[in-house]
Design a protein around this nucleic acid. Structure first.
Lengths: 190, 190
DNA sequence: TAAAATAGTTGAACTTGTTCAACAGTGTGT
DNA sequence: ACACACTGTTGAACAAGTTCAACTATTTTA
C-alpha cells in the first residue's frame, strides 16, 4: 500500500485507531517531483504540507546578501513544511527543492485545518511532532554554539549517513553554516 | 485576578470558551522563587511546566567542556519548559535559574497530560504554541548563520529591550554564543 | 561526445572570534 | 565599612572561518 510509510510514521508518534488513521491518510495525494524542481519558492504562500515517500529535499532561504542558508534536509520518512507560511498565510521565506526525483504525499491546508476540528487525535499528532522538532532545534543550536565546524560536520555525517551520502559538500557546508572552501580544508586535516 | 496574564496569553494563541479556560487555569499553582535559585537543575526529571508572572529566568546547559550555553531567557508572560525532559521523562539537560525574585504559575505534568485528554482545546493550545516556537527557533538559527555576533547583539537588544535591560553582558554573550570579552570589544567599535 | 556548468581543492591575505592574564569598577553580604 | 565575589575592559597572541582567485575534476546538457 502506497501510504504504509506514512501510517508507520504516524503510529510512531501517537496511538491512533485504524479508522482515524485511514481517514487522515485519505486526504493525502501522491505527487511526483523532478530533481531540481521546487515544491515551494520564496514569496509564495504555502497551501499544503508534505511527507516524503521517496527522494530527498533541501529547505533553504536566501538572505539579503544573496547567501543560501539550508535549514534542513528531508529524505524518505520525513515531514516537509513551511510552518510559518502555512500557519499565518504570509509569503514563504523558504525554498523547498528536490535534490533528486522524488515522491511526496501532500495534504491541502484546508483539509488539514478541517481534520484538526473533526479528529482531535490529529491535533495531538502535530502537537507531539512539533514538540519533538522543537527539542531537535534546541539541540542543534547548542551544537552550533559548542562545536567547531569540523565537529558539526562529523556529527552530521555520523548521525545522518543516508542523507549525507546524497548531498554535495557544498550543500552540507550551507547546512553547517560555513563556506564550502572551509569545509574542503578541514575535511583533510587529521 | 492572579491568572489574568495567563488567560490573556492563552487567548492570544487559541479561541477558548471561558469555562474551559477556567478549568485549565485552575491547575496552575503560584510559586515564588528567589533570585539565583533553580527551578530545574541538570540531571533532574522535569515534572512540571511553568508560566512566568513576574521576574526573569535563564535556561541554559553546561557542556562537557564546562561551557555554559544559554538557550533562552523567559520574562513575564513567557512559558518555561524543558520539553525534552517533560515529554520523555529523561534527565534534564537544562538548568532554569531565576535572575531576580520571580513568580511562576506551575502545572503538574500529570495534570497537564490529563488535560490533553479531557480538554482537546489544550492539545490545540500547545500545538499552536509549539509551532510558533518552532518558527522562532528556525529563524534564530538562520540569524546565527547569516549575522555576525555584533549584528546578533543589536538584533537582540532591539527586539527584547525589556529583557536585555535585566541581563548582564556576560549573560547576553552566552546567549549569542560568544565570549563576554569579545562582546565587550565589539560593543565599543563603531 | 563536446561544451558548458557545477563541484571540489588550494593558497594567500584577511576578518571574526578566543584565550589568558591583568586590572578597574561594582555590587553584596556580614 | 570591609572583604569578597563578580562584571566589565583591555591587550597580545592565537585559532577559526572567509574571501577571492585560480585551477582541476566531475556532471549535465545540448
Amino acid at each position: 500500500m502506497i501510504d504504509q510509510l506514512l501510517k508507520d510514521n504516524v503510529r510512531r508518534n501517537i496511538q491512533i485507531d485504524a479508522k482515524d488513521l485511514e481517514t487522515f491518510c485519505k486526504h493525502f495525494s501522491l505527487t511526483t517531483i523532478k530533481k531540481k524542481d521546487f515544491l515551494i519558492s520564496q514569496g509564495e504562500i504555502c497551501k499544503f504540507e508534505g511527507f516524503v515517500l521517496e527522494g530527498c529535499f533541501r529547505v533553504f532561504t536566501i538572505d539579503k546578501k544573496g547567501n543560501e542558508n539550508t535549514l534542513y534536509f528531508a529524505a524518505k520518512d520525513w515531514w516537509l513544511m513551511d510552518i510559518d507560511s502555512f500557519m499565518n498565510q504570509n509569503p514563504s521565506q523558504l525554498n523547498i527543492q528536490a535534490l533528486e526525483d522524488s515522491q511526496v504525499l501532500l495534504i491541502d491546508r484546508q483539509d488539514k485545518l478541517s481534520l484538526y476540528e473533526s479528529l482531535p487525535v490529529i491535533e495531538k499528532l502535530f502537537r507531539v511532532m512539533s514538540q519533538k522538532a522543537l527539542v531537535a532545534w534546541q539541540r542543534r543550536l547548542i551544537r552550533n554554539h559548542c562545536l567547531t565546524a569540523k565537529e558539526r560536520y562529523q556529527y552530521f555525517i555520523n548521525t545522518y549517513p543516508h542523507i549525507a551520502s546524497k548531498l554535495t559538500d557544498k550543500q552540507i557546508a550551507r547546512y553547517l553554516g560555513v563556506t564550502h572552501e572551509f569545509l574542503s580544508k578541514f575535511k583533510k586535516s587529521t
